[in-house]
Design a protein around this nucleic acid. Structure first.
Lengths: 198, 198
DNA sequence: GTCTATACGCGGATAGAC
DNA sequence: GTCTATCCGCGTATAGAC
């Protein structure tokens, strides 16, 4: 037989990237059991490593969750930016933001729950707070084109979008998947009204 | 000495109403540590009873939390109803609802967190779901006077109010206490715009 | 960088006495 | 209706070997 190439040597049993494997397993776990049901021990099991292994990659349980939340905000940022880029009218850009926000909550339930419902102390994770700010900051451009009260409009659109997303996730509009399209429509509509009535 | 009257005999050590004492202790605990940090054991300790005692009053941990959530919705119902009753114009009634919703979230942080963030399965607690519905139902009257799309308007006003309340609680507008008045103003304003633009 | 082993504490819940 | 006692399991985190 030929000699096997020495490269992909499994040190313990593992892929080069336990860190990402842990993040993926944690996200899956939150999807199944909510942020309350998330534990580092179960995450380790799912990633196929010992419960001690994660501590080489994350300071503690909350640090892993915070990192997940940060990537959640980044995903939001990219998605919302893309949705807004498809429009040119500032009002329609705000409406597109609201629609995309609702879609994100429905399609990434676990990530949405982590960013908002995990009770992370953002002061302890500056990178997290900053990533969150960057999402709302997407509204700055269009809002500024509509009037002087920029912050007011940003906050109003953001809050409205969040409210629809939260109600949808909570099941107030029915099953999230089936109610998604209608909820997006209403969120976009609300954004338009809030941006225009001035 | 005179004989003591036999009536208020302390059976164990307790007041006649451990049930309510437990609810109060639990609410205080949630206020300090969030829904995540709530445990039946610590609640028992604060109420001054053994960890076994609560099980005579509540089936399990979640049942206590669900009862707390139910009373939360009832308090909301009463407060919002009163706030709306002070107005006669339907648009102003909806605005009053939004303002009161925001105030409730800021002034009853723990209760607000339990009603929305405790991850209770409402299907398991029908009384809870019903109490929640009754809150939104307060909007039915004013909404109906403004047009045919009653449900649409109810949901929109409710979602917007909730979004402002959630952003306020999350600290996005700054310290909840200091930002309360401004947030109420914005929430009422948004409600007016959403009710009028049609 | 991962494992094994372990210390430690805590929470949920039940049985049985009073 | 409350207590005492107890079982059971789980999660966090660290130490030390490899």
């Amino acid at each position: 037989m030929m000699r096997m190439p020495p490269s992909p040597r499994p040190t313990g049993l593992h892929h080069g990237d336990l860190r990402n494997a842990l993040l993926a397993a944690a996200l899956e776990l939150v999807a199944e059991r909510g942020t309350q049901g998330f534990t580092l021990a179960e995450t380790s099991r799912r990633a196929g490593v010992s419960v001690a292994a994660p501590y080489k990659h994350f300071a503690d349980k909350d640090a892993l969750l915070a990192e997940l939340a940060r990537t959640g905000y980044e995903r939001q940022h990219d998605l919302f930016q893309a949705a807004m880029a498809a429009e040119s009218d500032p009002v329609e850009q705000l409406a597109a933001f609201a629609g995309a926000y609702v879609a994100f909550a429905a399609e990434n339930k676990a990530l949405f729950e982590i960013t908002f419902g995990a009770g992370l102390e953002k002061q302890r994770y500056p990178a997290l707070a900053e990533a969150g700010d960057r999402v709302l900051a997407l509204l700055r451009g269009p809002a500024a084109r509509l009037g002087p009260e920029t912050d007011d409009l940003i906050h109003t659109i953001g809050a409205a979008a969040h409210g629809f997303a939260a109600f949808l996730a909570e099941g107030i509009f029915g099953e999230p998947t089936s109610a998604l399209a209608a909820t997006q429509r209403r969120a976009r509509d609300a954004a338009r009204k809030l941006a225009l009535a001035r």
